[in-house]
């Protein structure tokens, strides 16, 4: 029995490794692209820019109020159907864009929260020194807010890794999809193969979760030192 599982594992491992690399790649692209878009939106929202703040608020609510699976279908089926040439993308681009946009909605709220958590006195002191709004943000607020974003951003990163599994639905050859294809080769070992897949996801996510918990304690401890 054990030998059988061992031979399945060793024959599938190179194939699953390919899938893991794609999962790694998609999750990295999504966290980087999503963070860039999200940081911009979060900063704008924290500064209460008229009109833009409410437009971005709507953007965040739409992305948070619908399941990622439905968003993926919209990016995969609806947008290429609009007839706009640059939106008629292939499934891989649709998947990457959908996941990045989804990520940005979570990052935006984290960034907004972190900027607002920096004590007001900091901004007031910078104003007293004659700094402009952008200078205050760049030299005073952002460096302090950045630290506060680390624990929740690690949580978002885990969420993204887990969401990449859903991309298997539109045929992206990531880990879950490779697992499904493997089952065609070993139809009797469905459960074992999904267990193996779950284990590989666990190896990727668990260290990030531990880091998130560690960072939470660090940032939490540092904050109590602040007198404001």
């Amino acid at each position: 029995m054990l030998e059988r599982y061992w031979s399945i594992t060793s024959s599938l491992l190179p194939f699953l490794w390919q899938g893991f690399l794609e999962t790694l790649y998609v999750s990295l692209v999504a966290i980087i692209a999503g963070s860039l878009i999200g940081a911009l939106i979060g900063l704008v929202r924290s500064q209460r820019v008229p009109v833009l703040t409410s437009i971005f608020g709507l953007y965040i609510h739409i992305l948070r109020g619908t399941p990622f699976l439905v968003q993926l279908y919209v990016f995969y089926f609806v947008l290429p159907n609009t007839g706009i040439s640059w939106l008629s993308w292939d499934s891989r681009t649709a998947a990457f864009v959908a996941l990045s946009v989804y990520t940005s909605s979570y990052v935006a709220e984290i960034v907004k929260g972190a900027v607002e958590a920096v004590p007001r006195g900091q901004s007031e002191a910078a104003t007293a020194l004659g700094m402009t709004r952008l200078q205050r943000l760049w030299y005073v607020i952002i460096p302090q807010a950045l630290k506060l974003t680390v624990p929740p951003m690690s949580g978002v990163y885990v969420m993204i890794i887990k969401s990449t599994a859903i991309l298997s639905v539109v045929g992206i050859s990531e880990l879950t999809r490779q697992g499904e294809v493997s089952i065609l080769r070993f139809p009797r070992d469905v459960l074992f193969i999904y267990g193996l897949i779950a284990f590989i996801y666990f190896l990727y996510c668990y260290p990030v979760l531990r880091f998130a918990r560690w960072a939470e304690r660090r940032v939490g401890a540092a904050r109590t030192v602040d007198l404001d």
Binding site: A165, S168, Y194, G195, Y201, C205, L209
Partner: peptide, 22 residues
């Protein structure tokens, strides 16, 4: 708790779907 938090829901659904009858 660690297992649930560190694996995708989709994979968990498959595990339950194929594993529970066994």
């Amino acid at each position: 708790v660690a297992f649930i938090r560190a694996t995708p829901l989709l994979v968990q659904i498959y595990l339950v779907y194929y594993g529970l009858p066994a």
